[in-house]
Amino acid sequence: MQTISLPLSSLWKILKYGLYDVMRSRWVLFYGLFFLAATDVLFRFGGTGERVIVSLMNVVLYVVPLVAVMLGAMFLYNSREYVTLLLTQPLKRQSIFGGVYAGLTVPLCLMFLLGVSLPFFYHGGITPDVMQAFVLLLFSGVMLTAIFVALGFAIALVHEDRVRGMGLALAHWLFFAVVYNGIVLFIVYFFGHYPIENGVVALTFLNPLDLARIILLLEFELSAMMGFTGAVFRQFFGSGMGIGLAIGALFVWLLVPLGLSLRYFKRKDL
């Protein structure tokens, strides 16, 4: 009978030292500065908090997953010996996995949150009417970071070859960010005269990026622009339950690759 409880104390320790390490590395700082600069520039050129949020949406939806999946894979490839060192210590594999995963995800999320929030505070961009959108933007960014780092980890775990792994990471991003929508658009365009609305709603759930995009866009313009044809869609995502389900699905998108990776990692020969 194997214990399934996560030994959290060693996970926290690994995370703690992982944070010491990662927070001192230049690329994490650069990542934070990128968001800081982007948000600041948007404020200086665009003005209002709402406009900035709309412009940041694309950054969050496309840059965050790209960086997360690539860094996730690369980080694991680079930490291979370190992970081995940890494995030879009296530590459970799940705490090592959790600690190393969190050791990348937490600093990335922190940098994202800080980089985006700081300009909002000092430019006074947070007003009550954009509060919800702002929170959703931060939430989406954090979720997408966590999901795509997990995806990068999964890829790097399964594929020993680093070049192949990095290529696959990029391919995954391309698929979720571009190709997937191409396929859906194709389906929608050629089968739009059938009642496919429920299908379109379902398709959204199969792509975490799309989920985040819809959650964010509904906050801004999408619901109004859907018109009557989009009624099912609008009603679904417009309801508390729909948004709840979408957010829940994002968590599923996080936990599934993470769980599968952990399972794989626990059995893997290193």
């Binding site: 658009l185 929608v188 044809t229």
Partner: peptide
């Protein structure tokens, strides 16, 4: 019109 769901995608 349902294609509107693709709004904002890359």
């Amino acid at each position: 019109p349902i294609a509107m769901t693709m709004l904002g995608s890359l």
